[in-house]
Amino acid sequence: MQTQSSRCSIDRQAHGRVLEFAAFSWPQPGDAMVGWPSVAGAVRRDALNRAILLHFAPGRVLAPDPSAATEALLDAAAAQGVGSGIDVTGKWEHYIIAGPDAARLLACAIEPGAVLENRECAAVTLFDCPAVIARTHAGFELWLQSSYSADFLATAERFRAALQRT
């Protein structure tokens, strides 16, 4: 579903494979690996500023559309005994929430400023739906557990419409 308005939009993004890499412990030595977003809530981005590794839970990193380099990094981590990579394609849906009311829309569910204080991404529950949020230049990006997406969009739309009226 895509909703558009001048104040706030929620747009689904196409994506391919998604991996999660789960470390055996956190914090732990693998954090020292080059290119690893070791800090809690850190996000590693590519040259186009797309998030490629999101450290959203202790030792757990989301790797959307992994490039060959990213796969190599994860494989190396697994080979070093840091943890395991799991193909979770289909578990997460990707959305961009943008526009001047983007933060206000999220504020219907959480306080985005506080949740993202000192971090680039965070695991949250939005309108009862588990998600990972991160800031983007236009607003926020959202990785949403797919079985919840229909209800999430319906509820978000109710709040978005109400913001539109005020």
Binding site: A40, G41, P58, R119, A123, T125
Partner: peptide
């Protein structure tokens, strides 16, 4: 939360 920072009790 040692990972997420201060969060509301209802999240736990």
């Amino acid at each position: 939360c040692p990972f997420c920072g201060a969060r509301e009790l209802r999240e736990f």
